[in-house]
Design a protein around this nucleic acid. Sequence first.
DNA 1: ATAGGGTTAG
Length: 817
Amino acid sequence: MRDALTVLVSATIIPLSAPTPRRHRRLTSSTTTTKPRPKPNPKTNPQVSTYSPFLTSSPWDNRQSLKYYTEVASKLAENGRFEDFLMILESVVASEVKPSEFLDLLNAKNVASGIVRVIGESKLTSDVEMLFNGVRKLGIEPVQLFDGVSMELLRGECSRLLKCGEVEQLVSLMEILSGFQFQIKELVEPSDVINLCISKRDPTAAIRFAQKFPHAEMLSCSIILDFGKRRDMLSAVTAFEASKQNTSSPNMHAYRTIIDVCGLCGDHLKSRIIYEGLLAGNFIPNIYVINSLMNVNSHDLTYTLDIYKKMEKLGVPADITSHNILLKSCCLAGNVGLAQDIYSQIRKLESEGALKLDVFTYSTMIKVFADAKKWRLALEIKEDMVSSGVIPNTVTWSSLISACTNAGLTDQAMRLFDEMLQAGGQPNSQCFNTLLHACVESCQFDRAFRIFQCWKEKGFQQTITGQMRVTSRPYSLMTVRLPFRPTATTYNILMKACGTDYYRAKALMDEMKTMGLSPNQISWSTLIDICGGSGNVVGAIQILRSMRESGIQPDVITYTTAIKICVEHKKPKLAFMLFGEMQKYQIKPNLVTYNTILRARNRYGSLQEVQQCLAVYQHMRKAGYKPNDYYLKQLVEEWCEGVIQSEHQDKSQFASRLVEFEPQSLFLEKVTKHLQDSAESLSVDLRGLTKVEARIVVLAVLGMIKENFIAGNSIKDDVSIVLGEQQLSSHVDMDASGVNEAVIKLLHHDLGLHVYAAGRDKRNGIISSLKLEEVIERSDSQQTSASPTRRPVVLQRLKVTKESLHRWLRRTGSSTR
DNA sequence: ATAGGGTTAG
């Protein structure tokens, strides 16, 4: 092909105008030599015109030869030989032929195919740019080389690149073309290119492309936001940084957008850093930037308040939106008082004409009170609103209904719904959901289904008259549009309304699917709850399995629900199995989970069960949850006390199966240690424990002693209990002193053991033995800041006599032997 | 260009 062309060029040029041999060489050099050629440049090569074939036949009388040369040029271009093409063009221009004549004769399609070929060969920037620059230098705009057909070719290439996802090629091409007056819109759909860049996670290319448009700032923002919507913070920030490149003053719109994206991606701190960067550059943010920043950080009232206070100093006065966001922040923080203060403050500003409260303000305040169960105050806000002439919208009504629902006022909620309809309010799905939830909360399940049925029957875009009322109050000529669009939430709420009717709930879940809705974690958790609640524990666990199989990952609540079911149906083994499964799937239990599983053991359960509970307790502490004395107390009462006192327990192999605790918590370490120790020379170390923990440890040791006694090993020594240093300052450590009292109460009063104190007098270092009465007395005197005459004894250890232990063992142990 | 409402476990 190339050779054929060489022949063509050689054959045509020589007879026509007798170009110099040099010229000839240059024209064909690309096929005959690999040596770099000098660039043709009319300015530095004045002889170009001298060699122009057209000059020899001036004035131009040979249209045929122009046509011929143009054809050659077209062919050269088609083969990507742009330099040669340019040289012919140079000659044409130099011979004072009008470019339009050349262009008329040019086979535009050939040129376009050449360009398309070069694009395909990825020589885009070097070759095409060279061609276009060359053409432009000769006074022709490159876009003029294209006619309708060739433009279509180019468009085809663009869609090919788009289809193949050649982001870099496509964007580079667009950059070149837009630099030469091509209309990008006529070649590709700009949004297609941007979407490709986004789907290929190429923020830089997206922004490069966007910058070729007059509305680049707006496009950049939508790109940043799109990445944010995909939760791709990194790309969003890259796009944001790229969009900052060619601008001297910052684009506040972009700042606002990236801050919103931080919110979408849950990176509140990043939004603060971006904002601080803006301030550090001595730029004044606009109101949108500040409002977005506050909104993204609305979960941190301290921060939003701080920003709000600084607004005035920045010279950006807070507007109603700023205040609304601040109210939202109060709402999230549950700070009703501050919300009320702000509300009255802005009401005052409104009376001065400085602000105008809007529907957001009132709705947010209503939500503040709704969450705080202050339904009366919520209704008062509604009155404020109406008297200010602000019309409640669906959100306002929903929040009002919620306020009543949260306060348990179902009928009031219903009345509000009626009121909304009468006021011309159009309920939507969320509003219906609120209403349905009100019914469910008050266990008016039938009512919930009736409302749902009504909603359903009125169907899509139908009007109803009077029949929608949910109270007894009749009204006529009511026209309400009720597009029936239940959401997943609707079905979830209705599932709850099934009580323990598992099959009904299951049917609802199926209906949900036929409505094109996917059951979510809440749907499945509810189904598990209902199935278990109907007594079918195994079924509940099977549902948990189906849930995973259907691609929905169970979450903490799902597992906690399932565990609750097992606990309620006295299946501790299953409960612990599920708890273990959670670890396997790396689902972190929360406080509710721990408290639920801790209820799993039965009263007077086996040692293994207790050990499992202790392991859970340890797990809990490890996870950073505060030791829950309440459940530990239950452990004491329901197990440890049982070990000591009960006649009904299973006494077998008490000390044989010992759980292997990791010594993470002091308490568990001690329980473990004492449970594992042999019965010889027992010393119980209670230092650092709370009184409840101390109680368990003491009981565990006693249980141990008892087991050994039953096995025939009786105790040979008094049992020593190390209490630890007591502080003598006026700041008595309440926990530590509580330990002494609790232990003494347990041993002496509850179990009737004989206890004496081995105290070490700090002054003379004598170990003194005291009777219990004295122990208590001195213990008291420590707490009430010792009298000067009686120095308090620094209690270090108690002893329990082996005789009293023997008596106790015979008394309680014999009955079960 | 900004902001708001509904459902699950102890």
